[in-house]
């Protein structure tokens, strides 16, 4: 049984198929202070899977459009370019990783929880007046490190799961026990390597320990969204546990329990969107 280290996983990130050139190009272009909407639409249209996902997000009931948007250009106008930037990153990464096959792992459950967390994060952001698209994307990618572990080191991941099943503990505890590091560190390394917005990298890195860092609204928000998505059981599974909600994050977010229950209801009503975001 070979031991693996965080350094080995990070070094192996290069073994993952690179983000398609189209996406890389698009992400670079969207970093510019001034961008042309026609150019962005053109770049997105070069990747049909990405274009389809973006249209689906723009047409989701959340944005409450009077009519369906049919073109990328319309979708960008509806969402705004700033919003589109983070959504493009999220949609691109999910599309990209969905193509990887991890034998013996319930990928659908993983992505349903990720998409559910994205929906929760967006609802929380609207409630709190935070940036909805950054929140959505951070929610979508918060556990990406776990998927990378499964894809690159399936054997190590199996040992983690065996430990989890034996002790019925939180998955992050099993990772820490077996590997000596956890999925948040892997995810953060990927976020840096692939030049995600810094805010999103920080949220991925600290979504399990918001209390250990100075107040950061996106970290608190993704932490809470992860809890909500588990409460709403997007992925199902009898072994699942609701993660420990941090007092510090809860107090800083300043939501009451009545509002919390209302938000659960809001996301519950959008539940189907998680499934078709992945299709």
């Amino acid at each position: 049984m070979s031991e693996i280290t965080l350094q080995m996983v990070v070094a192996d990130l290069d073994r993952l198929p690179a983000l398609p050139e189209v996406v890389q190009d698009l992400m670079d272009y969207l970093q510019r202070p001034e961008v042309d909407i026609g150019q962005v639409a053109y770049k997105i249209a070069r990747d049909p899977a990405l274009a389809a996902k973006l249209l689906r997000i723009a047409n989701s009931s959340f944005y409450g459009l009077q009519r369906q948007v049919a073109t990328i250009r319309d979708a960008l106008t509806v969402l705004g370019l700033r919003a589109a930037r983070t959504l493009v990153i999220g949609a691109a990464v999910v599309t990209h990783f969905q193509a990887l096959v991890a034998v013996g792992y319930d990928q659908r459950a993983f992505w349903l929880h990720s998409a559910g967390t994205a929906l929760c994060a967006r609802a929380l952001a609207r409630e709190l007046g935070a940036n909805m698209e950054n929140s959505f994307t951070a929610g979508l990618l918060h556990d990406i490190g776990r998927f990378i572990l499964v894809a690159l080191f399936p054997e190590a991941h199996r040992r983690v799961m065996a430990y989890r099943d034996e002790h019925d503990c939180y998955p992050i505890e099993a990772e820490q026990e077996i590997l000596g590091f956890n999925h948040t560190q892997i995810g953060a390394a990927l976020a840096v390597r692939w030049k995600f917005p810094a805010e999103i990298a920080v949220a991925i890195a600290h979504h399990h320990n918001p209390m250990d860092i100075p107040a950061n609204s996106l970290v608190d928000l993704v932490h809470m969204a992860d809890v909500m998505a588990h409460v709403l059981e997007f992925s199902g599974g009898n072994e699942k546990l609701v993660p420990c909600l941090s007092d510090a994050a809860w107090d800083r977010l300043g939501i009451g329990w009545v509002e919390f229950k209302r938000l659960l209801g809001e996301v519950d009503a959008q539940r189907d969107e998680a499934g078709w975001m992945l299709s």
Partner: peptide, 19 residues
């Protein structure tokens, strides 16, 4: 079942009740 490993801290118990 979802809260079987939850600690007895106030916030976590309030969460369990709200859920």
């Amino acid at each position: 079942r979802l809260f079987r490993r939850a600690s007895s801290n106030v916030t976590m118990q309030a969460l369990r009740r709200a859920v």
